[in-house]
Each structure stands twice: as structure tokens, then as C-alpha cells.
Nucleic acid binder design. Sequence first.
DNA 1: AAGATATGCAACCGCTATCAT
DNA 2: TATGATAGCGGTTGCATATCT
Length: 262
Amino acid sequence: MGRAPCCSKVGLHRGPWSPREDKLLVNYIQSHGEGNWKSLPKKAGLLRCGKSCRLRWMNYLRPDIKRGNITPEEDDLIIRLHSLLGNRWSLIAGRLPGRTDNEIKNYWNCHLSKRLLNQGTDPNTHKKLSQQATNTRKNISDTSKTFSERPKIHLPKPIRVTKSSFPRNQSFELDNHQCNANTQAGGNPSSDYAYAADHGGENMRGFLADDLDIQFECESTVLVSEDDSSSLEKLYEEYLQILNQNDDDEMQLDTFAQSLLI
DNA sequence: AAGATATGCAACCGCTATCAT
DNA sequence: TATGATAGCGGTTGCATATCT
């Protein structure tokens, strides 16, 4: 498979963006829309590779990006989503309106993982470290179990849903929630994703939806796309409510984790 | 005040999935 | 079906700034 030449190989600009470059990029996208990142720099008059332009737009220049500190509510949501989704930053970001995957990733690595460690929780497994140490010792002493007998974690593989995957503006019912497949330029690309999980012939349902008990009509994909920032906000509020309801039901998280074991 | 160290964040790199031909 | 091009993700790096000694 061919690899797009890196900007370093073709003598393009690298490093921090100048205000002039930002302006050129914003102006171009405002008049032509997102997409065609490969050809965009040339058309916009930028000496950058398309990849760099895309990243700059997604993580910094997009008008719907929320600036400022991450709130305690967002904090909590990130931790909960991370316990369900792992390091799938784009999916987590899709549930935090205005936040980018890069920002959440950085915030996790700098703050949240350290905080969890301080609280005695393993940031990777979200389990108490003391409990893990006990389990580890137990496993070491239990030499009768071979490596192959250890439970395997089955993580449903995420699939990308791109513009051609859905008809334009097609709507999808998800219980009482209405989501639209935003396939037009300017939509939130990080949320143009769906998860599909293969459960041995059963209808495929996304595991996040399973955990949150949201029923999806579409058989093979779980749509997590929203039409605009207001519906993102609404969805966010709904997620918060659902997650808050789970405060009293930690067992549900354990059940979910076990459902991933095969 | 100055150097060392820690922190935060933007940007880059390498890889994979998807699409077009 | 095979292959190349492109988009997008997650891990990592590097630099600017803040804090500590």
C-alpha cells in the first residue's frame, strides 16, 4: 500500500502555524468546505501537507471548538467513557461537544491518568491497584492455568462510516433519540463514526449502546453522528443523565466488561 | 537570579481502514 | 480482486511556559 509522502520529504513547512497560515486555511475552508486535504494546501496557497492542514483545522481552527478548562462534569464523563471505550479518543471526543480527540488525549495523559493513579486506580483497567496486585499474585501462584486458558478480551472492531456509507442527511432512529448522518462538509468529522460488533451471528450492536441501554434500529451499525452542535449538546446531556443514573449501579459496568470476554 | 525539572499542548509519525479504479 | 490514494486514529515528540531548588 502506498504511503503519502510526508511533508518533510517534499520540503514543506513544519512546526507551529503562523497566524497568516491559519487565516489562509480558515478562509479556504469557509469558502470551499472541508475535504480533499491532499489538494487543499496548494489551492489555499499553503506550504503545508494536507495532513498537517487537516490536523490544524480539526484540533484548533474549527469554529465549534470549545476553549477553556475541562469541567468536572466533562472530567467524570471522560473517565467513564474511557473505562468503556479505552483509548479510543475520537469516540470519547464525539461525546464531548467542542472537545477534540487530541485535547482529551492530552488531558487524560497529563491529568486524569495521574489522578486515578493517586486514587489507587489503574488508569488502564480502572480497577483498584491493590485489588489488581492481589489478583496478579493469585495468578502467579496458580500455575495450573496455562497462558492459552486465560480469558481473551474481545474488543469489537470500530468501523469507519464515511460519506458514501449513508445517503445524505439520512435519519436514524435510536430509541427516542434522533440522530442524523451528517455527511456534509462542515459536520463534526470525529463523530462520523459508527461501531459495529460481531457477536456470532446475532444482529450487531455497538457495545457502548449496549451498555447504556440504547436501542438502535439499524442492524449492523451503531450511529453516533449528530447533525449540529445543538443536537450534540442534547445528546451530551442525555449521556450525562444516563451515566449519572449508573452511579448507583457499578455492577452494570462489570457486567459490560464481562460481556467482552470470549 | 539562574539553572533544573515538570507540565501542557500543538504538531508529527506511523499505521490502518476505506474508497476509487 | 488487487492496488494505490486518501482520510483518520492513536502514540509520541518537542517546544514553550511554569514551578521548583
